[in-house]
Design a protein around this nucleic acid. Structure first.
Length: 878
DNA sequence: GCGGATCAC
DNA sequence: TATGGTGATCCGC
């Protein structure tokens, strides 16, 4: 009877914050008279008092309204379904159900292991003072878990600590110690490996095992291979010194008394420490100091739990079933420190499923539960009965999922962890409204993210920022660039721009933020990486005639490794600064940092740059014949000259080192590689380093372009080309470390010519091409690059950063603004002249005719960004 | 590709 | 005083 109470301990309830649902769930916290704890009314009252009127609650109400609207939409749609449609759907769904039934696989034995109140249990184990007391792990702001004692007071995971304290003033909140949990988790996983080397860890305290193979082998195992000695753990000794511990019947409580004493007494059936639901003929045999486990699945799982407890003094619960979906539900059934098995036959599965509330199933969350409840569906049986209707109201993915659940079907093999798809960092803080602080924070997040990315060697193309305002409204903004990025600086260039757009959009009102996050995704898969690899090899292959434009997508140089960790320069973190309330000057708090390094960009920059250039040319073209042009080669403004004159300048720029009207241009080299080599070997290498040291104010840009056709022709000198791929690595590693560094740089950069035409035809052809002409630009700049899109000087010598900036420029469509305001996007946010829009404001949307999806079909609202379109160049310069 | 949402842990 | 962080996926644009 009361064991059903403990079922409610499932992880699912942990994360629910919605008060309505909380109220419902609290019914599971009722206590017997005289017992310590709170009844549900008290719990709900306290929670409501602590919650009501808060911004958080306001947002919860708003979200609830949206869900209700979705439900209303769904019910409307349901009302329009004809009986004929329903019959047709029934046939279709039943056909599919039949197929599923035929493919039902009962041959696998899947185990789900779940450590009981893991973090809390570890803390209790390691601190005897916490024994017998209600504890939770987390902070005043948020708890990640609570022990069973605390749960009697309604203290749950995902509940803010300050509310928990009101529920249970004696509650001890222990700060989390993840390193320790990790170490314990490793110990557990070592055991699991013995039963399934390919087990799937879902988190520190949860894992799936496929023990099918183990069972097969185990059949023939002699007894001593299944025999384990019982050792009393340390926690045991300070519990009940005189207690007899070497009997299995005592294991449950004696070895890990802490948890058990918190458990409802009815779970502690003295003669049966392992909660099992079937009569097992070969229960563990206890001897003097050892125990022998049988060969059945149930015995295996007992053995696992026994070993885990012996090793860690912590208990685990487990579920055994023919598939993962069922095993997961099972592990929850006899929690804590229990196990449950669904025997591998259809009847057993269906019996189990019959009255199972759908909410118990992984994947059915709060919202889905509510929507299905509106259709009268609470149990799996009802889910099955309504299958035809569901197929008409939900997306295919969704109703397929529902059908699987209602038939008790699930995955029978443990999918190997796929490749990571994204990496992110986010942080909650007390309100931050000042733009410069927001930028500064953003920069810090980018640095953190970059560190994480570097550890895993990840580079991606899409940067997403996440903002949550003080009203708990969340929005994300993403930007995809044409080449992978990974360093803090690269990511920040993009993130900053996204942030700036949002700040501008709300101007003159500040963004009142409580959370900010940065994510990188769009990692190239293995195939793409290989392709890039092949491309670079093909590109550099001597005599390669079939040099296609696409083959020029080269691997970006791996310069991060020689980039000084950006963070090391930060003595104090943003938060530290805030905390100490030492206000730095605006320039300090937010500047687009000049990257103190020089990097040679061999590859993708060409693609990016070329694209930008071609688009820039269009810009120029569209802005009539007399304009301020910026040379795409030397990046100097050419003043108001005609296209023809500008073209001549570009040609000249490409043709020779001396450029008319550009006194600051130190070289725009078209020397032979030998010349360059010599020159740089003798002078350049040293001078560049020196320049950075002593002449940092001086602008110095060197540009080389490489026409691939000529490159191929000149590959008779292998030394010129073979090493291009590693060129920047070497260069930057040795950057400024000695005279040799720069010579390397030049040595491998074959000179060449590149003609840039502003004739319409050429511009058009550039534009039309998916991939630009395979020209390879290498820009070496000591100080300043000029963005060919926005025409503004970029305070960076890092070409990749520069390219990212250009990408961002294009993506955000800020060219016009920039040209007008002459505001560098790397600098302080400008005062936007844009009127505030209703960005983020909720608007109703009409019903769509298409088949609904679970998540959005019945969406109650839609956000629009009327004044913040994703401009394309075409739009901009129309 | 983007943005909002849902879900798990 | 005070309601998390990370990753994945789906769906409609």
């Amino acid at each position: 009877m009361d064991s059903t109470k403990e079922k409610s301990d499932s992880a699912k309830e942990k994360s629910d914050n919605c008060k309505d649902d909380l109220l419902l769930r609290m019914g599971l916290n009722d206590n017997k008279a005289g017992m310590e704890g709170l009844d549900k009314e008290k719990i709900n009252k306290i929670i409501m008092e602590a919650t009501k009127g808060s911004r958080f609650y306001g947002n919860e109400l708003k979200k609830e309204k949206q869900i209700n609207q979705r439900i209303e939409n769904m019910l409307q749609q349901k009302a329009q379904i004809t009986s004929q449609q329903l019959r047709k759907a029934q046939l279709q769904v039943d056909r599919f159900a039949m197929e599923l039934e035929q493919s039902r696989d009962l041959n696998s034995t899947i185990v789900h292991i779940d450590m009981d109140a893991f973090y809390a249990a570890v803390e209790m184990r390691d601190n005897p003072e916490l024994k017998d007391r209600p504890i939770a792990v987390g902070s005043m702001s948020m708890l990640s878990t609570s022990n069973y004692h605390a749960r009697r007071f309604g203290v749950r995971a995902a509940m803010p600590g300050f509310i928990a304290k009101r529920l249970c003033p004696q509650l001890i909140i222990v700060p989390p110690n993840f390193d320790k949990y990790q170490a314990v988790s490793r110990e557990v996983k070592e055991i699991l490996t013995d039963y399934d080397p390919n087990f799937m860890a879902m988190s520190l305290d949860e894992a799936y095992l496929n023990i099918t193979k183990h069972l097969e082998e185990r059949k023939n195992w002699p007894e001593d291979k299944r025999k384990y000695f019982i050792t009393a753990g340390t926690s045991l000794e300070n519990d009940n010194p005189g207690k007899e511990v070497n009997k299995l019947s005592e294991l449950g409580r004696s070895i890990s008394p802490l948890l058990f004493e918190d458990s409802p007494p009815e779970l502690q059936s003295p003669g049966n420490p392992f909660q099992v639901n079937s009569e097992e003929p070969n229960n563990p045999q206890t001897h003097q100091n050892s125990v022998v486990f049988g060969t059945s699945a149930e015995e295996v799982v007992k053995e696992i739990r026994f070993r885990v407890e012996q090793k860690t003094a912590l208990t685990a619960s487990a579920g055994i079933a023919p598939n993962t979906m069922l095993a997961k539900v099972c592990s929850d059934k006899n929690k804590p420190n229990g196990q449950y098995q669904i025997l591998p036959n259809r009847q057993a599965v269906m019996d189990f499923i019959k009255d199972l509330p759908i909410r118990k199933v992984s994947g059915i969350g709060k919202v889905t539960e509510k929507m299905l409840k509106a259709l009268g569906i609470i149990t799996c049986t009802e889910l099955y009965q309504q299958r035809a209707l569901l197929s008409l109201l939900f997306s295919e993915t969704s109703w397929h999922h529902f059908l699987h659940i209602s038939l008790g079907l699930g995955s029978t093999h443990l999918a190997r962890d796929g490749e990571r798809k994204s990496r992110s960092v986010e942080r909650t803080f007390s309100e931050i409204s000042k733009a410069e602080e927001q930028y500064s924070l953003c920069q810090e997040l980018c640095s953190e993210l970059a560190q994480d990315l570097q550890k895993e060697g990840l580079k991606g193309r899409t940067v997403t920022i996440k903002l949550k305002n003080v009203n708990f409204e969340v929005k994300t903004r993403a930007s995809t660039v044409s080449a992978v990025v990974s360093t803090a600086e690269e990511i920040f260039v993009i993130a900053k721009e996204l942030l700036r757009t949002e700040i501008d959009a709300d101007f003159p009102h500040p963004l009142r933020l409580r959370l900010m996050g940065v994510r990188l995704s769009g990692f190239p898969n293995e195939e793409e990486k290989k392709h890039q690899q092949r491309s670079i090899i093909g590109f550099l292959q001597p005599g390669n005639q079939a040099l296609s434009a696409t083959s020029c997508i080269l691997e970006k140089t791996d310069k991060d490794q020689f980039l000084k960790p950006a963070q090391t320069s930060h003595k104090k973190s943003f938060f530290d600064k805030k905390r100490s309330e030492r206000k730095a000057s605006p320039q300090d708090t937010f500047t687009c940092e000049t990257v103190n390094k020089q990097s040679l960009q061999t590859s993708q920059s060409f693609q990016v740059l070329n694209k930008k250039m071609s688009e820039n040319l269009e810009v120029v073209e569209k802005s009539h014949n007399c304009q301020t042009f910026t040379c795409p080669v030397c990046f100097r403004e050419q003043g108001s000259i005609s296209l023809e004159a500008f073209n001549k300048h570009v040609d000249a720029c490409l043709d020779g080192p001396s450029i008319s009207g550009n006194p600051k241009m130190s070289s725009c080299s078209h020397a032979s590689s030998a010349e360059v080599n010599e020159k740089e070997n003798v002078y350049g290498s040293v001078s560049l380093c020196e320049k950075r040291g002593y002449e940092t104010h001086q602008k110095n840009t060197e540009i080389m372009s490489v026409d691939p056709v000529e490159l191929v022709e000149t590959t008779g000198k292998p030394s010129n080309t073979d090493d291009i791929g590693v060129l920047s690595n070497k260069l930057s590693e040795e950057e400024c470390s000695g005279p040799s560094s720069k010579s390397f740089n030049m040595e491998h950069c074959p000179q060449n010519s590149c003609t840039v035409s502003l004739e319409n035809e050429d511009v058009g052809s550039l534009r039309r091409q998916e991939s630009p002409q395979p020209n390879l630009y290498e820009v070496i700049s000591d100080q300043v690059l000029v963005c060919p899109v926005c025409n503004l000087e970029q305070k960076t010598s890092d070409l990749t950063l520069f390219n990212v900036h250009v990408d961002v420029c294009l993506n955000k469509g800020i060219i016009q603004e920039l040209r007008e305001d002459k505001i560098n996007p790397c600098n302080q946010p400008k005062e936007s002249t844009k009127s505030t829009d209703n960005l983020g404001k909720v608007q109703k949307t009409g019903n769509k005719a298409k088949r609904p999806g679970l998540m959005t079909k019945y969406s109650a609202s839609k956000k629009t960004r009327p004044n913040n379109p994703r401009h394309t160049l075409d739009v901009f310069f129309k």
